[in-house]
């Protein structure tokens, strides 16, 4: 561990705001990149199920 205490770790020698802002926004974008295709796939499966139900009713 490079820092002596947790508050020093958060403070980053006075650069805390910059470091945590950069890491924070990147983490958010990484999570969005994961969530979008997962949700898209769920939606595709749901649509297909609805379509099949409709086809079964009409036949």
């Amino acid at each position: 561990m490079y820092f002596d205490s947790f508050s020093e770790f958060l403070n980053m020698g006075g650069h805390g705001l910059y470091v945590w802002l950069a890491y924070g926004l990147s983490a958010v974008l990484i999570v969005i990149n994961v969530v979008l295709p997962v949700m898209h796939k769920r939606q595709l499966i749901k649509e297909q199920a609805r379509k099949q139900r409709r086809e079964q009713q009409s036949s």
């Binding site: 980053m12 006075g14 470091v19 890491y23 990147s26």
Partner: peptide, 9 residues
């Protein structure tokens, strides 16, 4: 100083 850590992303 520590702002250098931004390099890692």
């Amino acid at each position: 100083g520590n702002s250098f850590r931004i390099i890692y992303i």
